[in-house]
Design a binder for these strands. Structure first.
Length: 511
RNA sequence: GGCCGGUUCGACUAUCGGUUAGGUCGCCAGGUUUUCAUCCUGGAAAGACGGGUUCGACUCCCGUACCGGCUACCA
């Protein structure tokens, strides 16, 4: 039987994790869990010039928030560590040497300045068979020259020698057969002058050493696939190579191109999973988490960007995704990100979520808005009352603040045009009745009874309840929104309701 | 420029040769809600183009167009 499924997500820790990155993690995770396999997090920090402090922790935090916990990682450990490529540096040279010995790679001594000059001189310069002999390397130079350069520790890189008449063909799980003429691809650098491998060498060596069975990555990697295939062939044999799948890109909602951080800023939506603060500029980029998305919704919407189960089902739990995920239902084409639909997913998840659980998630937003919650049970109850009108977590503040303190702004403009003495008298009578209840030690009354009393009183004053409802609502919540008025009165209790009515009557009489 | 990939309503997508091309978001209209939201009903809205193959093509093949990705000692 086939070996146990092992997949990896291999980000370089350079900044916030964006939608596309998280989706790549998700597909890796779902595939692994679907096949009872293992999901590995490997940090590809081979470019020391791009090291960003905190970025690795951010990736870990993001995976934790999303519920995509790795089985092996720099912090979770595992039998194939270390899981940071910078700590695996010693591994790579051996393989580079092997490639050179086999004639599949060579030393190149060109300085960055040499390369720059050559690029300026030759339009569309490629370091390949067309110009290889014009450069300074162990193919163009004599053996003695190379030896002395090496002996003098002349800075050099190792480049793969792309074959001349070879068609590189491989099977992509999503795209089917893909082929390249190897001679059109340039001689990629494998080992840099600082001794660190480039992605090309590192990914092949580590996938082999970590026994990766399936390698998934974004479509932007497709053009360099022939380099990786060749490396597998030269180093470990094609029969050992993982199965590849190049995932479709997530595109800008408007216009064209890959979704980027700037699109989010421009169009007003998050692109990163969580808040990310640039360590140099201190500029903060908002994340889906902080914007008020539920991780369940975030995962759900990401899963449906480029995949579906073939039915009309759109709301999936993680368990359901694991059960039904399959790579052959992943699309080939990129998907434009639609923030409106993203919010819809979140709303659906808010509606489904347990009030108690929701209350714990919403509490921080109340704290931030400086709205004091005296009783937790009261908050839970209010959440149940307003949840279906909230798309994002902060919506709970605007939708329910009036349950905790009297509204600060009152839309009196919607009352005054039809305000009259009769109505004034009605509300004064209502205040009297509520006050009597309070004196009788009744702090609140069930909504149904409140409504019945209200209607009786209206009839007594020869007014239709309909003309009183809107003013009443505005007195209580400040505007034309919110749950049923009598439910509100029941919740905020008579004392509070009374003072809100009185406050408004005062404003209305002075106008 | 070169190489590679992609193309169904505005967006996400179903369809694996035979359908009035379906669903969801958004949009519009109506109902419910004596408010808003929810919810319900209805509506507008799509196979890039041109050739084949076939009794029959959204579906298979070729070409064109358009879009995207890559083309660093970055990943």
């Amino acid at each position: 039987m086939d070996a146990k499924v092992r997949v990896r997500f291999a980000p370089s820790p350079t900044g916030g994790l964006h939608l596309g990155g998280v989706r790549t993690v998700l597909f890796n995770y779902l595939f692994a869990k679907h096949h009872n396999g293992e999901f590995i997090l490997r940090i590809e920090d081979t470019d020391q010039s791009r090291f960003v402090p905190g970025a690795e922790q951010y990736i870990l935090d993001t995976l934790a928030w999303c519920g995509l916990s790795p089985d092996e990682s720099p912090v979770h450990g595992g039998n194939y560590g270390p899981y940071r490529q910078s700590e695996r540096k010693a591994n790579y040279k051996k393989y580079a040497d092997q490639l050179i010995a086999q004639g599949n790679a060579y030393y190149a001594f060109d300085t960055p300045a040499d390369l720059e000059a050559k690029r300026a001189e030759v339009p569309n310069f490629q370091y390949s068979r067309t110009h290889r002999m014009e450069m300074k390397n162990s193919i163009s130079l004599s053996a003695t020259e190379v030896e002395s350069l090496l002996k003098n520790n002349t800075p050099h890189v190792v480049r793969i020698k792309m074959p001349e008449n070879e068609e590189v063909i491989f099977e992509d799980i999503i795209r089917g057969e893909v082929s390249f003429d190897a001679s059109t691809v340039d001689d990629k650098v494998l080992l840099k002058a600082d001794g660190m491998p480039t992605y090309h060498l590192a990914v092949v060596v580590d996938d082999h050493l970590m026994k990766i069975t399936h390698a998934f990555r974004g479509e932007e990697w497709l053009p360099s696939a022939p380099v990786h295939i060749l490396l597998w062939k030269y180093l470990f044999g094609l029969d050992q190579m993982p199965k590849w799948a190049h995932l479709p890109l997530i595109l800008k909602p408007d216009g064209h191109g890959k979704l980027s951080k700037r699109d989010g800023e421009r169009l007003g939506f998050p692109v990163f999973a969580m808040d990310w603060t640039d360590h140099i500029t201190k500029e903060n980029t908002i994340g889906f988490k902080e914007k008020g998305f539920l991780p369940e919704a975030f995962i759900n919407l990401l899963a449906l960007l480029g995949w579906n189960d073939g039915t009309d089902k759109e709301i999936f739990t993680m368990e359901e995704l694991i059960a039904s995920f399959s790579l052959d239902r992943v699309h080939k084409g990129g998907a434009k990100f639609d923030y409106e639909k993203a919010k819809w997913f979140n709303q659906e998840w808010i509606k489904r979520m347990d009030n108690e659980k929701l209350s714990r998630l919403v509490q921080p937003y109340f704290d931030k808005a400086e709205i004091e919650i005296h009783e937790h049970d009261y908050l839970v109850k209010i959440i149940g009352l307003v949840k279906e009108r909230c798309h994002l977590l902060p919506d709970f503040i605007t939708q329910s603040a009036f349950f905790f303190k009297a509204p600060t702004t009152i839309d009196t403009a919607s009352i005054t045009p039809k305000w009259e003495a009769k109505k004034q008298q009605f509300f004064e009578a209502l205040v009297k009745i509520y006050s009597d209840h309070i004196i009788a030690d009744k702090q609140t009354i069930p909504a149904i009874e409140l409504e019945a009393h209200f209607k009786e009183l209206a009839a007594l004053h020869e007014l239709k309840p309909g003309e009183l409802m809107l003013p009443f609502r505005i007195m209580l919540v400040g505007g034309k929104f919110g749950p049923g008025v009598f439910e509100i009165v029941e919740a905020i209790e008579l004392k509070d309701a009374t003072s809100r009515i009185q406050y408004c009557l005062q404003i209305l009489s002075t106008n």
